[in-house]
Amino acid sequence: MKFENKIEELLGTGKINPEQAAALRRSLQGGGASVEMNYHRGLSFGGMFGIAVIAIFAVIIIGGAMSPQSPQDVQNVAQTLNQPGGLGEMNKSMTTGLSILLLALPAIIWFSASYNGLVSKEENVLAAWAQVESNYQRRLDLIPNLVKTVKAYAEHEGSTFANIAKLREQADVLQNAGEKTRELAQGSVGKLEDESYMKNLSNAQQRVGENLKNFMMTVEAYPNLRSSDQFLELQGQIEGTENRINVARMAFNESVNDFNGAIRRMPGSLVSGLGNFHRKAYFKSDEGADKAVKVEF
């Protein structure tokens, strides 16, 4: 299905907000093809009806095939019609067909329900990823402002800054790391099944977090800067974003856990095999995978 439709669907059901939808669209640039291939859509009533019709036809054909007579044979009415104390051939094949149908119908309903359940779990993964993405995007958007504020202050107070070169250098490192991660994150929604990509992305994001932390630690040496209201606002936004990232990462990994569990457990594994559902990768880094970077000031 077209990813735009999927985004609209997620928006419509309130699973993501317009900001996250925009982040998803950005993320899908270059990754759209794989998204169309990898992600599923729930079976509609029409879809289920279609499967049921196909099943009925199949039953009729099977019923017909089970008939002992060839269509070219002249029908022996005495054999076909019901006889006292017994069933004719016509009713025998009908009964067999109906029995198969009765057995097949619950299976069809169960399959459809299971398939839709997996689709909705997969959608939860996508929505949770959108949240992770939008928070990382938010952090990347804040970095230029932070760097600008600190550089402006450094220029203003240049004569009293002993460590100004280090601060500038760290600002550049931070900005570069941010830009690199932004590039790496392009099309990430189409690569949720790629464990090594997800690990690389997580490591890159963690490096940005560490650079940010080092930068803020250097800034701490300048109490005038720290106590300004403008810096306080930025600091609050950055710290807030780190917390949002932690919460979103946790929610994403929980939804992946839920989805992966569902496609591996019986009987969901039967449906996932037929429906071509694939395991999603957790968003964890190499070191301290379960510990996100804490930026506290």
Binding site: N17, D229, L232, E233, L234, Q235, G236, Q237, E239, G240, T241
Partner: peptide, 18 residues
């Protein structure tokens, strides 16, 4: 979510610290 546009993270930090 929703209220975070009114009570931004920066504003809440200000509330707490100031």
């Amino acid at each position: 979510a929703g209220l975070d546009a009114v009570y931004t993270d920066g504003f809440v930090t200000y509330l707490q610290q100031r």
